[in-house]
Each structure stands twice: as C-alpha cells, then as structure tokens.
Lab assay of single mutants.
Amino acid sequence: MKVTIEENEETGKFTIKVKTEDGEEKTIEIPKENLEEILAKLPPNVEII
C-alpha cells in the first residue's frame, strides 16, 4: 500500500491519496490538526510518499 500526502497551503488541509496492492485508489482531505492521528493509525507495511 502506498500513501501520498500533499499539503494544500490555501485551505490548510492535507490531501491523502491511498493506492492499495490491488490498484484501488482513494483520496481524502483532512485538517492539518488530524494528520498525526491519521498517521498513527496506518499499518506498518505502508509506504509513505
């Protein structure tokens, strides 16, 4: 699983794009305050880009 994290400076939010092993892609946008909480919940086999 690969996770790409991009900061949107205009909105102050982060866009998180997840690509699973089977090629499925999902995108979510979260507030900056929630980034550490989300990262802590990721499984250890995740590659963060």
Rank of each mutant, 00 (worst) to 15 (best):
E29G: 02
I48T: 04
K32A: 10
N45K: 04
K2M: 10
I5D: 01
K41R: 12
K17I: 15
P43D: 06
I49C: 09
E21Y: 08
I28G: 01
P44M: 10
K32H: 07
E7V: 13
V18T: 05
K2S: 11
E10M: 09
K26N: 08
I16F: 02
K17D: 04
E24P: 05
V46P: 03
I30M: 05
K17N: 11
I38Q: 04
K13C: 15
L39V: 03
T4E: 06
P31T: 14
E47K: 10
E7G: 05
E37V: 07
N45D: 10
M1H: 04
G12L: 03
E10V: 11
E29H: 08
K26Y: 15
K13G: 15
I30G: 03
L42Y: 06
K13L: 08
E7D: 05
G23Q: 03
T15M: 08
E9A: 13
E36L: 13
L42R: 01
I16C: 07
E25C: 13
E6G: 03
K13S: 13
I5S: 01
E21M: 10
V18H: 01
E10W: 10
K19C: 13
L35T: 00
K41M: 13
P43R: 08
T20L: 10
E25R: 02
L42P: 00
E36C: 15
E6H: 09
G12D: 07
L42F: 13
E24R: 10
T15Q: 09
T20G: 10
I30H: 01
G12E: 04
E9I: 12
E7R: 12
K32E: 03
N34E: 14
I49A: 05
I5E: 01
P31W: 13
E21S: 12
I16K: 00
I5Q: 01
E24T: 12
E29A: 04
K26I: 15
T4L: 08
I48G: 02
A40F: 01
T11S: 07
E29F: 08
I48D: 01
E9N: 10
K13W: 15
I16R: 00
K41D: 06
E24S: 11
T4Y: 14
D22L: 07
V46M: 05
E25F: 09
L35A: 02
I5Y: 04
E33R: 06
E21G: 10
N45Q: 06
K19M: 14
N45M: 06
T20M: 12
T27H: 07
K32M: 06
M1A: 08
N8C: 07
I30Q: 00
E9Y: 11
A40R: 11
D22Y: 09
E33Y: 06
N34H: 14
I28S: 03
K17V: 14
P31S: 15
L42V: 02
V18C: 15
K41E: 06
M1I: 13
I30C: 14
F14H: 15
K32D: 03
K19H: 11
T4M: 08
E7W: 15
K17Y: 13
G23W: 02
K41I: 08
I30V: 13
F14P: 13
N45C: 12
E7N: 05
P43M: 10
M1W: 06
T20N: 08
N8P: 01
T27D: 02
T15I: 15
L42C: 07
E47R: 09
V18L: 11
E47F: 04
K41F: 09
E33T: 06
N34Q: 15
V18A: 01
V3H: 01
I49P: 03
N8A: 04
I48A: 02
L35E: 00
K26A: 08
T27V: 14
E37Q: 11
E25L: 06
V46F: 08
M1K: 03
P43Y: 12
T15F: 06
E29W: 07
V3I: 12
L42H: 01
K2P: 02
I16S: 00
T15G: 05
T20Q: 06
G12V: 00
I38E: 11
K2G: 04
I5K: 00
V3G: 01
N8R: 02
E33P: 03
E25V: 12
E29I: 14
T27A: 05
K41S: 11
E9K: 14
E25I: 13
E10N: 10
K2N: 06
F14M: 15
P43K: 06
K2L: 09
F14S: 15
E36Y: 13
G23N: 03
T27F: 13
V46R: 03
I30F: 09
N45E: 06
A40V: 04
E24N: 09
T4A: 04
G23A: 02
K26C: 15
E21L: 12
I16D: 11
K19E: 11
E24D: 08
E29L: 10
I49T: 07
E37C: 12
T20F: 15
F14V: 15
I38C: 13
F14Y: 11
T15S: 06
D22T: 09
T4K: 03
K17P: 01
P43L: 10
F14K: 14
K26G: 04
A40C: 10
P31A: 13
K32S: 08
E47G: 04
N45S: 07
T27W: 14
N34A: 14
E37Y: 07
E21Q: 12
E47Q: 12
E47T: 12
P31D: 15
K26E: 10
M1Q: 05
I16W: 00
K17Q: 07
E47M: 10
E25H: 05
V3Q: 01
I5R: 00
P43S: 08
E47A: 07
T20V: 04
D22E: 07
I48C: 08
E29C: 12
E21F: 08
A40D: 04
E37S: 08
K32Q: 06
V46A: 10
G23R: 01
E9P: 13
T4S: 07
L42S: 00
T27K: 05
M1F: 05
K19S: 09
P31Y: 11
E10F: 13
I28V: 07
I49K: 06
V18Q: 00
L35F: 05
N8H: 06
N45G: 13
E33G: 09
K26L: 14
I28F: 14
K19F: 14
L42T: 01
E24F: 11
I48L: 06
G12R: 02
E37D: 09
I16E: 12
I48Q: 02
N8W: 02
E37K: 08
T15P: 13
K26P: 01
E47I: 14
T20R: 04
I49S: 07
L39N: 00
G12A: 01
E9V: 14
F14E: 13
E10K: 11
E29K: 04
T4W: 15
K19T: 14
T15A: 04
N8F: 02
I16G: 00
K13T: 11
E6K: 05
P44G: 08
D22G: 08
E47P: 04
L39F: 04
K2D: 02
P31L: 12
I49V: 10
G12P: 13
I38R: 01
E24G: 08
I5F: 04
E36H: 11
